[in-house]
Computed example of a mutant assay.
Amino acid sequence: MSRDATDNLHAHPKHHHDARGFVRAVEHASEERGLRLTPLRKEVLELIAAAHKPVKAYDLLDQLREKHGNAAPPTVYRALDFLLENGFIHKLESINAFVSCHHPAEAHQVPFLICDTCSSAQEVCDERVAELIEAQARALGFRPQAQTLEVHGTCKHCHKA
C-alpha cells in the first residue's frame, strides 16, 4: 500500500471510511502479499465493510443466501478465516461478530469499545495500549502471542439518548 493510501486510512480518527475504499485497500494489500482474494472472500468482505455495526457469521450467511441460495456455513467460515488470518477484519469475541479492520495493510492489535445498547464497535487506534499490555505481560514472564481487549459500555450517541 502506498504511503498516501496508508495515511488516508489513518486520517480518519472516527474511521468513517467508505466501504468501497476499504475493499480496494484490501484488494491492493492482497496483491502486494500474493494472497488470493476470491470472489466469495471479497463478497464477505464487502458485506462486513458495508455493515454499520459488527456482523455475525449467520447474518452474513443469510445475506449470501439471498444472492446465491446455496451458501453453506463452512463456506462463510472459510472466507472469515482467510480475512481474519490476513488482518483484514477483526473478530469481537465477546459478541461473536466481525468488523472491518481500519488498517488492513498493517499487522496490529487494537482494543475495541463496544456499545451494549446499539452494538456499535469503535476500534481504538493507539499503539500505546497494546504496547502497555505486552510490556506488563513480559514483566510477569508471560509471552503474549495475541491480545484482544474489548471494553463494553455505552457510546456517546446512546448515552445522550
Rank of each mutant, 00 (worst) to 15 (best):
M1Q: 09
S2Y: 04
S2A: 06
R3Q: 12
R3G: 05
N8K: 15
A11G: 14
H12E: 15
K14I: 05
H15L: 11
H16W: 02
D18S: 07
A19K: 07
R20G: 07
G21I: 08
F22N: 12
V23N: 04
V23Q: 04
A25Q: 13
V26E: 13
E27R: 14
H28F: 04
A29V: 02
E32D: 10
R33S: 07
R33Y: 02
R33F: 01
L35P: 11
R36Q: 08
R36I: 10
R36G: 02
R41M: 02
L45H: 06
L47G: 03
L47V: 04
A49V: 00
A49T: 01
P54G: 11
V55S: 09
K56A: 14
A57G: 12
Y58Q: 03
Y58D: 10
D59Q: 12
D59N: 05
D59K: 07
D59Y: 05
L60W: 11
L60I: 15
Q63H: 13
Q63Y: 04
L64P: 04
E66G: 02
H68A: 08
G69W: 02
N70E: 15
N70S: 15
A72N: 07
P73F: 09
T75V: 11
Y77F: 10
Y77K: 12
R78D: 13
R78L: 07
L83F: 00
E85Y: 01
N86D: 04
G87P: 04
H90R: 14
H90D: 09
S94V: 13
V99F: 08
S100V: 06
H102V: 00
H102S: 05
P104L: 08
H108W: 09
V110A: 15
P111A: 11
F112A: 01
I114Q: 09
D116Q: 14
S119N: 14
S119M: 14
S120W: 02
A121M: 11
R128P: 05
L132Q: 10
A135H: 05
R138D: 00
G141L: 07
F142H: 12
E150G: 08
E150V: 06
G153R: 10
G153Q: 11
G153K: 12
K156T: 14
C158L: 05
H159S: 13
K160H: 09
